[in-house]
């Protein structure tokens, strides 16, 4: 087991190095725009440009630049400075992290609970009106784009511009530590929007997975023992059916932490996605690079957590 985890972590680190190298290639070698020009502005003189180049180390050979970039990144966790605010990128990301975590954690909790519950009920009450209704709703939610759902939600329920003034609207986010009540209410709409499409996917996945599992021989054995149907479903069915859900749940959280761009933008939540969006519109490459690497880190971590969880859930994996 220990070996297994160590191997997963080493692979994760290797993956991060590859991503970092790709980032370097994209931003320094491909013609994405001269960082010095971007930093100096359109009307800069040639002298200023070469000074900036020197400051940023852009006049050194590419390999040296690459080596320094990787050294800074992996030994000092430094991602450079914003072209605009000159603030360290690591700081910026750290400041934005709580908002993103708040959004993703709450949303994930909602979609996991609702998706799994609906999926289980649908699987057990297969082909009933209830099943068809929930799967139909799920289909609609899966198909609805997040930003559209977000705008619709604001249009109907936002306290400022909505038809019914229920929940605080866009741009009302406050940190958990400064006002827990406001933190909670401001996030209700974003949570629901983030959760909607995922809950739908989870419900469909859980339904399919449980229907498959309920056809397994060991379910027949469980029934043959004379167990109550509830126990057969929960202890024997759901216990097996949940495995693929756990896998995808970890990955979804990892992905979303790095890329909740649409929802954070629609609701104007100061998270990492929003940071990334702003950086892209301003061509602030160090931030883009930082957020992309952060996203990669989240995904790698999520992967490792999923693998460990999987080994915990399935004893057959533990021993192989």
């Amino acid at each position: 087991m220990g070996r297994y985890i160590v191997r997963r972590i080493l692979w994760g680190v290797l993956l991060l190095i590859v991503v970092a190298a790709l980032m370097f290639v994209f931003f320094r070698i491909l013609p994405t725009g001269d960082p010095a020009k971007l930093r100096a502005g359109r009307t800069a003189s040639a002298k200023l440009l070469s000074e900036i180049r020197h400051d940023l180390g852009l006049d050194k050979p590419l390999l040296t630049q690459f080596w320094e970039f990787m050294k800074e990144l992996f030994l000092h966790f430094k991602l450079g400075y914003s072209y605009y605010s000159s603030a360290p990128v690591t700081e910026l990301i750290k400041n934005r992290l709580p908002a993103t975590i708040s959004l993703v954690a709450g949303g994930a909790l909602i979609w996991l609970l609702s998706g799994v519950t609906v999926g289980i009920i649908s699987a057990i009450r297969r082909r009933t009106v209830l099943d068809r209704a929930s799967m139909g709703t799920a289909l609609v939610l899966v198909s609805a784009p997040e930003y559209w759902l977000g705008l619709i939600a604001l249009y109907f329920f936002a306290a400022d511009i909505g038809k019914v003034h229920v929940f605080p609207g866009a741009g009302t986010y406050v940190g958990l530590s400064s006002d827990p009540g406001k933190w909670f209410t401001s996030l209700i709409l974003p949570w629901l929007v983030v959760a909607a499409s995922n809950a739908a996917i989870y419900a469909r996945l859980m339904r399919g997975s449980l229907i498959d599992v309920m056809g397994e021989d060991y379910i027949r054995t469980a029934r043959a023992k004379g167990l109550r149907e509830r126990r057969v479903i929960v202890r024997h069915g759901v216990r097996s059916a949940i495995n693929p859900i756990v896998t995808i749940f970890g990955l979804d959280i990892g992905v979303l932490l790095g890329s909740a761009i649409l929802v954070e933008t629609v609701f104007n939540i100061p998270g990492i996605g929003r940071l990334n969006y702003d950086a892209i519109t301003h061509a602030d490459f160090p931030i883009v690079q930082g957020t992309v690497l952060a996203a990669a880190l989240f995904i790698v971590c999520a992967n490792i957590v999923v693998d460990i969880a999987y080994a915990y859930l399935d004893p057959r994996v533990r021993y192989s």
């Binding site: 397994e216 021989d217 027949r220 043959a224 004379g226 097996s240």
Partner: peptide, 23 residues
């Protein structure tokens, strides 16, 4: 029926590997 199943009447199946819960 449940009270009889596994109590008065019990059953053994063909494939013991798939008939036991793997977890």
């Amino acid at each position: 029926m449940r009270k009889i199943r596994g109590n008065d009447i019990a059953m053994v199946f063909q494939d013991p590997l798939s008939s036991l819960h793997p977890f």
